[in-house]
Design a protein around this nucleic acid. Structure first.
Ligand SMILES: [Mn+2]
Ligand SMILES: [Mn+2]
Ligand SMILES: [Zn+2]
Ligand SMILES: [Zn+2]
Lengths: 137, 137
DNA sequence: TTAATAATAGTAACGATTACCAATATTAAT
DNA sequence: ATTAATATTGGTAATCGTTACTATTATTAA
């Protein structure tokens, strides 16, 4: 009835490569990377394994609105900021997400609060410089 | 060079219907609704107009991770909570989004903070009751 | 009216993700 | 090592929300 996961070469390499990267790659970015070591791997396998690994808590899946999913091999508690210009996601080390008057705010809704996500959106230094360069007005 | 928007029957009806609805419909939900008044309208027209209306600030576009876009005809400043079970989005009237130690947190990143989104995720009363009913264990 | 051109309906294309399936690799037991 | 059970794979097709295309129509200002 139950099914034990098997540590395949593909799963191993995907996990290793993701942990090596400091960035937060999309599935196909990671796919390209992994192909360096396993040229015959398929994109579907990458998706499948990322899903499994995220499900078992070995990696983090980051899904932000309006962009494809990204993955994080760093389980250390940290926040992220996303660049609205290029989509890059950077780590923010620091205090865990704060909580406050949320209870009061939600009191009337009848909802059972499961998660409170704080999403930071900004412009990364590179894009900022670029925008300042191409100023039209 | 410049282009002035035209108030077509379709745009008018889409805006009216969205403003009437208290829910936060997806494009195709709104499409079904609008077809009651304009049977020959196409889904593409609904998408196109929602985009235009959102761009000009006449409606709000809500894009949450992992689900299709939703739209809000209510411009009054308010927050939302989304049910992770059924996807429904409900209004939360109350204080505007708080801000605090964010500056400090972001100081080291070099990013220019554009927006700080607080997303509430929970279980709506209906889904909560349903889950309590279908308990397996 | 007229002319200029947004906007439309219908449909095809897109891109990220998932589903399918016969072949293969991993695991645990022999 | 051999085996048997089955999780996983590679390759590909399908899905689904959304966007792009295009000939035709409707809106606007003159
Ligand atoms: Mn990270
Ligand atoms: Mn709302
Ligand atoms: Zn950037
Ligand atoms: Zn619900």
């Amino acid at each position: 009835m139950e099914s034990r996961p098997r540590m395949t070469k593909q799963r191993q390499v995907i996990l290793e490569e993701l942990r090596m990267m400091r960035s937060h790659p999309t599935a196909d970015e990671l796919y390209e990377r992994v192909r360096g070591r396993l040229p015959r791997i398929s994109l579907g396998t990458v998706y499948r394994n990322l899903e499994k690994l995220a499900g078992s808590g070995m990696i983090r899946k980051l899904d932000y609105p309006g962009s494809q999913m990204r993955f994080d091999g760093d389980l250390h508690g940290h926040q992220h900021i996303r660049c609205i210009s290029c989509g890059r996601i950077e780590d923010i080390d620091g205090a865990p997400e704060p909580t406050r008057c949320d209870r009061e705010l939600l009191a009337g809704s009848g909802y059972r609060l499961v998660e409170r996500r704080v999403e930071y959106v900004g412009i990364c230094p590179e894009c900022d410089a670029m925008e300042k360069g191409n100023q039209k007005s």
